[in-house]
Simulated assay, not measured.
Amino acid sequence: MLKHAQCRVPNLIARNGVRLNHSAAAAAISHSARVSEHTSSPSEELRSDCFTPQEKIDEIDANRPFSNFLTDTFSRQHNYLRISITEKCNLRCTYCMPAEGVQLSASDKLLSTDEILRLARLFVSEGVTKIRLTGGEPTVRPDIIELVQGIGELKQHGLINLGMTSNGIALKRKLPKLVDAGMDSLNVSLDTLDKDMFEMITRRKGFERVLESVHQALDLGMPSVKINCVVIRGINDREVSNFVALTKDLPLTVRFIEYMPFDGNRWNVEKLVPYKEMIQDIESRFGKFEKETDDPNDTTKAYRLPGYAGKVGFITSMSDHFCGTCNRLRITTDGNLKVCLFGPAEVSLRDHMRQSTNDQELCEIIGMAVKKKKKQHAGMFELAAQKNRPMILIGG
């Protein structure tokens, strides 16, 4: 809401959908103010200082249209960016990668820290308000604190939420510094509450360390702490009720993810547990859920049991897709833009940056990719048959 509705705000929206960053906007405002000293009427001069530069920038942000480059042909506005910052992982989860691991990219093929920060700045300047760092396992990256700090500084320029998805193994000792650097959302991947089953699914040890990381995140008062659990029939589907029980006293969200097909994870439909089946099983044990209000772009159908501190959610990509409200884009560790998690189409932003492509040209390349995004992904049987990356090379 304008404090002084009669004041004029210079129109700083560039043509062709290009959004000015805040430093450019401030410079333009300053220039406009200098020009107005010589061209405005006395009454206009009296009004020229009724906004501070920051108030003018905020007003421009609130009123300019969403980036054309990040809007697809179905009018979906993509304000959520997931950036995979490493292909390396200290676990070998069965649904994420083959037992033998994956062929890692050469280091010179991966995005540098400066390239990641450049892309983060560009996407935020175009309207992205949420960034999530994924992998691989983000915490194995040596400069993870500095990287989070660099992206966290974009909260001065329109970024609202900075999150990370982690397996929690090496997270605990780094978490306080990550929070101080600007991270306010944490998703922890945990598919079992049984130590032996954990070692079978992940092919590694470390179950206790994951739980310690979850509790530390809660102790630090992080605004959003979630556990992501991929439910696989015959493996961990009998543990659903144990995860639900966690939400009785802990103010976190447990999200059950339908098992999805990716290269090397040996997906088949018999292993899929549809979310409606999970709900029936939970309600038979705990009583009726209360439905939570979902945000328009939520991937999760959220519920709560009466009197419980936390929530339960279901990510239903296979049995009830949410493509119509998708607002997410992904950048892989080697710098490719994926407009759909399940789509094989990719565009290399890395190659364009290394060819001295400027930000305006990058926006046009991104815009062309976004405009090619399909209305929805293929059905689960088609997905199982088509070629795509293993999940670890996409970014969880």
Rank of each mutant, 00 (worst) to 15 (best):
F66Q: 04
L46N: 12
A106I: 09
R47I: 09
A33Q: 15
F66I: 03
L122H: 09
R92C: 10
S67I: 04
E126M: 01
R92M: 06
S84W: 03
E126P: 01
Q103M: 11
S36M: 13
C89G: 03
T94D: 12
H31N: 13
R121W: 03
S75H: 13
K130I: 02
L117M: 13
S30C: 15
Y95A: 11
S36G: 14
G101F: 00
C89T: 01
M97F: 04
Y80Q: 11
A62Y: 12
E59S: 14
R121L: 04
R47T: 09
L104W: 08
K130W: 00
A28L: 15
S40F: 13
S112P: 01
T52G: 03
F74M: 12
C93A: 10
C50P: 01
Y80V: 09
S43M: 10
D114Q: 14
T134H: 02
S36F: 09
C96I: 10
G101C: 01
S67C: 04
A28E: 13
T113N: 12
A28D: 04
P42V: 12
L81T: 08
R34W: 05
C96H: 01
S107L: 12
A33N: 15
I83H: 01
T94Q: 13
V102H: 05
S43I: 12
S75G: 00
S41W: 11
T134L: 06
S36A: 15
Y80T: 09
S23M: 14
E37R: 15
V124I: 11
A26T: 15
Q103A: 14
Y95C: 10
Y80R: 03
I83C: 07
S23H: 13
T113Y: 11
R64C: 10
R118T: 05
C96W: 05
F123A: 00
G101R: 03
A26H: 15
K56P: 01
E55D: 02
M97E: 09
H38G: 10
E100L: 06
M97G: 02
N68H: 12
P42S: 06
A33P: 03
E45L: 13
S112M: 01
L122Q: 07
E55S: 06
L133Q: 00
E55P: 07
L111K: 05
S105R: 11
L119H: 05
S36I: 05
A27R: 10
T73I: 14
S32P: 02
H78W: 02
G127A: 07
E115F: 09
K56E: 10
R121N: 07
M97A: 04
F69A: 14
V35S: 06
T86Q: 02
H38E: 12
A25P: 05
A27S: 14
L110K: 09
L70W: 05
A25C: 11
V35H: 08
T71N: 07
R47Q: 12
D72C: 10
I83R: 00
Q77R: 15
T39E: 13
D58I: 13
F123D: 02
L70E: 06
